[in-house]
């Protein structure tokens, strides 16, 4: 079986700063992959390269066999990669329903069809009842939900969630985790979650990739990763690792 997403030797520099160095990873269809690492490890940069917001300086990124390294964000979305943003990018002056319809218009030109699909996704994500509210007036948790609904409306095969749970209360986080599980179970999407809270990622992911200083330092099943010395060192600092 060929992987859905293949990132092959991806390097991204900002001036002298290397945000990603030679990162290689693959995501299989229907898989939940956790992408973790300390702040500034290059997780969001990698997301940006995959989703076409930035372009990798070196390396190749393939999605479903097609080379997407240099494609624009809109084209990559059409191929089936959707994402959410660490700092929410909901369309603030549009209603919740209109936000999701914008996503649905990627697959249809008919307003009525887009509306039907959007309503279905609002039901699915638990936002039903908020349709006429302006996105700017939602709570943070609902904005993040809205972004997920909008991303799902583009009918992706791979969903990239950039810190979909950061800044949420424990209760909201639990609901968000539940939503991700349902997206996986009911829609069968491959999902990549960026998160720096280990407790959230570990139980959710089938496989975890760890970035530190822009490089991949570990990859494996969650229970192996929590015991990986490099990972512990990256998270807790050298002293802890050396003193063991």
């Amino acid at each position: 079986m060929t992987a859905l997403l293949e990132v092959d030797g991806c390097t991204k520099r900002f001036g002298g700063l290397v945000a990603n160095h030679d990162v290689t990873l693959a995501i299989e269809p229907g898989e939940i992959v956790g992408l973790i690492g300390p702040n500034g490890a290059g997780k969001t940069t990698l997301f940006n390269c995959i989703s076409g917001r930035l372009h990798a300086d070196e390396g190749r990124i393939r999605f479903a066999g097609a080379d997407i390294t240099r494609l624009g964000a809109d084209r990559i979305c059409h191929l089936g990669v959707a994402r959410t943003w660490q700092i929410v990018r909901a369309f603030g002056r549009m209603t919740v329903l209109d936000n999701v319809m914008c996503g649905a218009f990627g697959r249809t030109n008919r307003t009525s069809e887009a509306r039907v699909r959007a309503r279905r996704l609002l039901d699915f994500t638990g936002l039903a009842g908020h349709e006429p509210v302006l996105a700017a007036n939602l709570t943070l948790a609902d904005k993040k939900r809205l972004e997920i609904a909008r991303a799902l409306a583009t009918q992706p095969r791979l969903l990239l969630l950039d810190e979909a749970m950061s800044g949420l209360t424990p209760l909201e986080t639990a609901a968000a985790v539940d939503l991700v599980r349902r997206i996986h179970a009911e829609l069968g999407l491959a999902i990549c979650v960026v998160e720096h809270v280990m407790e959230v990622v570990m139980p959710l992911s089938h496989r975890v990739v760890v970035l530190d200083h822009g490089e991949k330092i570990a990859e494996g099943e969650p229970r192996d990763i929590v015991r990986n010395e490099l990972v512990i060192r990256a998270y807790l600092g050298d002293r802890y690792g050396a003193g063991r």
Binding site: G72, C77, A90, C102, G106
Partner: peptide, 16 residues
Amino acid sequence: RAIRDDQEGAEGIGID
């Protein structure tokens, strides 16, 4: 209106 509210967000959901 999507482009007006957030151009990058709009591109992210497939809008050229």
